[in-house]
Write a protein that binds this DNA or RNA. Sequence first.
DNA 1: TAGATTGTTAATCGATTAACAATC
DNA 2: TAGATTGTTAATCGATTAACAATC
Lengths: 210, 210
Amino acid sequence: MEGISKESLQRLPTYLRYLNELHLNGIESVSSTTIADRFKLNPVTVRKDLAFISEDGGKPKTGFSVADLVAEISEFLGYNNTQDAVLVGVGKLGSALLGYKGFSNYGLNIVASFDCKTDIQIDSTKREINNISMLPDLVKRLGVNIGIITVPAESAQAVCDLMINSGIKAIWNFSPTHLITPDNIAIKNEDMAASLAVLSQRLTAILKNE
Amino acid sequence: MEGISKESLQRLPTYLRYLNELHLNGIESVSSTTIADRFKLNPVTVRKDLAFISEDGGKPKTGFSVADLVAEISEFLGYNNTQDAVLVGVGKLGSALLGYKGFSNYGLNIVASFDCKTDIQIDSTKREINNISMLPDLVKRLGVNIGIITVPAESAQAVCDLMINSGIKAIWNFSPTHLITPDNIAIKNEDMAASLAVLSQRLTAILKNE
DNA sequence: TAGATTGTTAATCGATTAACAATC
DNA sequence: TAGATTGTTAATCGATTAACAATC
């Protein structure tokens, strides 16, 4: 059995949100065509994606069971067993992520936050902010696998290295740098400039056509 | 002449950051191999990318002129002529984006922010927050093309529709919903759940191998 | 039955990578 | 000259899409 493609994987959370909506509205089944229309995809793409995670598949004429898909995608994405994470850099963006309730739906739980500017402090949401020097011990003690980086670009690589040395295995990087990491570490560089480049180029194309 | 691929386009800002660093350090030329090593890419990929934006190309044995590449990528990405944008939803994430100095480097200038909760108010960084009802008039008056959405999922589609009706042509959506937009609108759904899905899956694969 | 829908196989499309001659 | 590096053509790889038989 082959692994799921990165593209399919990224579509699954989108499907799940939509399926949850349908579920709430009491809709029991849905066709690949309906899902495809919602997201401007080809129905075959949707069927291929769902074939990966669906046990029973769909039924000709009726489509897929909404409840089954919700359960199976949630399970596949690991939303049922929560992963712990630490966050470093409690500036504006870091605070925003700390305050975001949605992560619990995605099976992510930020257990501690760190900054270099403080000794133990309490932020506006009554969470402790620890000094960065406490990170290695805490990560080792709790066996945390995921690190979230929201520090300025200059310090991001140092924070990354510290995380890896402490035993972190996956890094979600929101600072505007491409971090250098060994191959046995999962890394996701969240690059706003890259996103904006795609958006701007499409905008330019649209303006040119009008 | 073909358009640049989405993938190439997304790599360009990454190259540019690195090239700016080299430039600051007084390094005058760089080979595609060096750039490729930095980002774990194939050198041919880098050369293809640079071929798109580079006038003179590189020289055998020496490589590419750093200064030329910096100028050409900046120009290509539109970092030299700034685009105006409006932002709706001045919560934590919205405030973080408003406060982010880096956008000016990317040719993006947020000229006004809006929220539904307020009449005209002053936020912590002394910027005005306008009531959402002021948006259509301001967007039309200033001819703003870009809208940034940082409201909760429930209100995102309504904000999106309002933006489009007001003449916005490109939407950068940070709310956890996939927005429905006509084909003549540029849209970038910034999907944290999709990113996290990719990271988690890699993490699972790494943990399994150990 | 008729028709909507599924799942699969084959064709297409696009991006990455390999191979290699050209050149400084 | 020798060797590093470029740019391009061809091969490979992977994802999307088209075609179509199976089925409820």
